[in-house]
């Protein structure tokens, strides 16, 4: 009996401790909690963590980071579960729906980074074949890119399913003897072309910039025609089919906020709106994180302490 009573007392003590601690209130500050969504690629990690550290260190905000995929995040902003995204590569259907029609998501301007998408080859290959500077040089030489899965044609390595792409249309319109091979998500595509790169073999692939790997591997872009008969832009994605645009446009990467956050009066709203930096800035931080495996917070702080002027501008000082 004695032991049993002791057990009960102990159990009661647990309950008391739990209840006391549970009621301890969370600290609050003028800024409150801000939730930013980070995407899987390193550039997004870079800008998300830099803004996070600026908000935390300078405004005393508590910053949460969510990692919702690119399209669902618009619903997350509509619900106010995510406050802001800092790098969007173009989602016209979502903009029509959430920004224009429902007005649950609002624009927060450009983040200063210019995105380039296109057809790339390793620079060593470009040196051997200067004619590859433009797409016309590819004509007749497609079989250089032959692989086990492309048969008698050359292989074109397609991009991540989540990225903006129209390569199959381009190949057909330009009449190139290339076979579009989809190699899946970006890590899988990187595995494919870096393996050929390391063997100094020819490879032609969908790629983009800013990308931290471009600091490790030297790649060059093939010039595609601005306009060409047969290149039809997808109207649904905001293109104009009458222009026959072939080359991918360069993208201004955009920031978005939830309506709820934008009208909350939080001092963080201004920082999110003013945040803007260059491709070089973003690549530098992304390289620290993905290339050197530095902790994202440390990498962000290192950049912040070296770039006080830019940070002050975001803070409106």
């Amino acid at each position: 009996m004695k032991v049993r009573a002791g057990g009960l007392v102990a159990a009661a003590a647990v309950v008391v401790v739990l209840v006391t601690v549970g009621s301890a209130a969370a600290r609050s500050s003028a800024c409150g909690t801000v939730t930013i969504n980070e995407q899987a690629w390193a550039g997004s990690t870079a800008n998300t963590y830099v803004v996070k550290n600026v908000l935390e260190k300078n405004l005393g905000c508590h910053v949460n980071i969510t990692k919702v995929a690119e399209v669902p995040v618009y619903q997350a902003m509509a619900d106010g579960k995510t406050d802001a995204i800092l790098e969007d590569w173009g989602h016209q259907p979502q903009w029509d729906q959430y920004v224009t029609k429902q007005k649950t998501v609002v624009r927060a301007g450009a983040n200063g980074v210019k995105g380039v998408i296109g057809w790339y080859i390793p620079t060593y290959l470009m040196k051997q074949h200067p004619e590859f500077k433009t797409w016309k040089g590819l004509k007749g030489k497609e079989t250089l890119f032959k692989s086990p899965e492309s048969g008698s044609q050359g292989m074109f390595l397609g991009g991540d399913p989540s990225y903006q792409q129209k390569d199959q249309t381009l190949i057909k319109a330009l009449g190139l003897n290339l076979k579009f091979v989809s190699v899946g998500a970006e890590p899988a595509q990187v595995a494919r072309w870096t393996q050929l790169y390391k063997q100094k073999k020819p490879v032609l692939f969908y790629w983009y910039d800013p990308q931290y790997l471009n600091a490790t591997y030297q790649v060059s872009r093939i010039q595609l025609p601005k306009r060409f008969k047969g290149c039809l832009d997808d109207e649904k994605l905001g293109g104009d089919p009458k222009k026959y645009a072939c080359e991918y446009p360069s993208y201004t990467l955009l920031k978005f906020m939830s309506k709820k956050f934008a009208s909350s009066g939080s001092p963080a709203v201004g920082v999110v709106k003013r945040f803007s930096w260059s491709n070089a800035d973003q690549n530098a931080v992304a390289k620290m994180i993905a290339g050197d495996h530095m902790n994202p917070d440390q990498a962000a702080q290192k950049w912040i302490s070296a770039n006080k002027a830019k940070v002050n501008k975001w803070l409106g000082k």
Partner: peptide, 20 residues
């Protein structure tokens, strides 16, 4: 499979979510 190079239906499904 679609995410590691099988293409076809798997790729289309992945693209369906991620490119809306």
């Amino acid at each position: 499979g679609g995410l590691v190079g099988s293409g076809a239906l798997g790729y289309d499904v992945a693209q369906g979510l991620q490119r809306s």
